[in-house]
Computed example of a mutant assay.
Amino acid sequence: MLRAGFAGLALAVVATARAEDACARPPALDPAGREGAAQGRVQAVNERLELTLEDGRRLKIAGLDPPRPTPDNPDLDVRSGERLAAWLAGKDIVFRLTGPRPDRWGRYSVEAFAPAQAAAPSAVPVAQAALDAGLARFEPGAAARPCRTFLLAAETTARAGALGLWADPYYAIIAAGDHESFAEKAATSVIVEGRVTGVAKDGFRTTLLFGDRRGFDFSVTILQRNVKIFTAAGVDIEKFQGQTIRVRGLLDMRFGPQIEVSNPDEIEMLPQGQDAAAPKTAPQR
């Protein structure tokens, strides 16, 4: 069962709604579809946390990175989908399209809202609820950008409580100096935390360094064409030096452990003085 039938989450959403209205409250239905707000009944939820409506439309919830099977939990993805289905299957949801057309797999990216309880008149954001329950990690991107702070807070709460996927040691945040964990998780989506010790530039890329040994210590690569995205967002890459940051993305081990990022959404600035000390295991629940 999802945490307290989402009753606690509903209260939290009401408490923060004034600061995050667009993220916390469902959009008004627009029969003409001008604002992309619509309604539908959920028929099924799969292991990718994608929704299939009774009319056949497939929805991908913006901001959700669904779990994959792990050595200790080979059916983690299936169980997460089943938990979300236990809440949503047969329910009417309201959703707002975050793009004008479906992706190459026929999925519409959406912000979705559903009743927290069967008799509840108000609806809560599905992405926040799923993250709050540990059913997924936050997935950065343009579709989730307006609610990024809101969704990261929900993920942080689940991680602190070792809920859902966060109870699996495989999903622990990797400290930048934990070379053993890098070797085990090559070519998978990871979250890495550490202090930036240097910023290197050449004609093709900017690299955030997390140690003195290039090709051995962890690094973050920003290609030159993507540096412009950081600049347009008002982010000075040079100012990452000396800061503790959290980075999420695909771990590439071909030239030492590194993640290539394309925009600032994939990097979180952590409080000054906080050092990376990610545990190798998380408490089981």
Rank of each mutant, 00 (worst) to 15 (best):
G8W: 09
A15G: 09
A19L: 11
A19E: 13
A24L: 04
G33I: 02
V42D: 00
V45A: 02
N46R: 07
R48D: 10
G56K: 07
R57K: 12
R58E: 05
A62C: 06
A62W: 00
L64P: 00
P67R: 04
P71C: 07
P74Q: 12
E82S: 07
R83H: 08
L84R: 00
L84V: 07
L88P: 00
L88D: 00
K91F: 08
K91H: 09
P102H: 04
R104V: 11
G106V: 08
Y108G: 02
F113A: 01
A114P: 02
P115K: 04
A116N: 03
A119G: 10
V126Q: 00
A130D: 01
A130H: 01
G134L: 02
A136Y: 01
R137N: 08
A144R: 00
R145H: 10
P146K: 02
T157M: 08
T157E: 13
A158H: 03
A162G: 06
L163N: 08
L163R: 15
G164M: 02
W166Y: 12
W166R: 02
A167H: 09
A172L: 05
A175P: 07
A176D: 03
E180A: 15
S181N: 10
A183E: 14
E184N: 10
E184I: 06
S189W: 15
G194I: 01
A200W: 15
K201V: 14
D202R: 09
F204I: 14
F204K: 14
R205T: 13
R205M: 11
T206Y: 05
T207V: 15
D212W: 11
R213H: 14
R213Y: 11
R214A: 14
R214H: 11
D217V: 04
T221P: 02
R225M: 13
V235K: 00
I237F: 04
F240N: 01
Q241I: 06
R246M: 11
V247W: 00
R248H: 10
G256W: 03
E266R: 04
P271S: 04
Q274L: 14
D275Y: 10
P279E: 10
P283D: 11
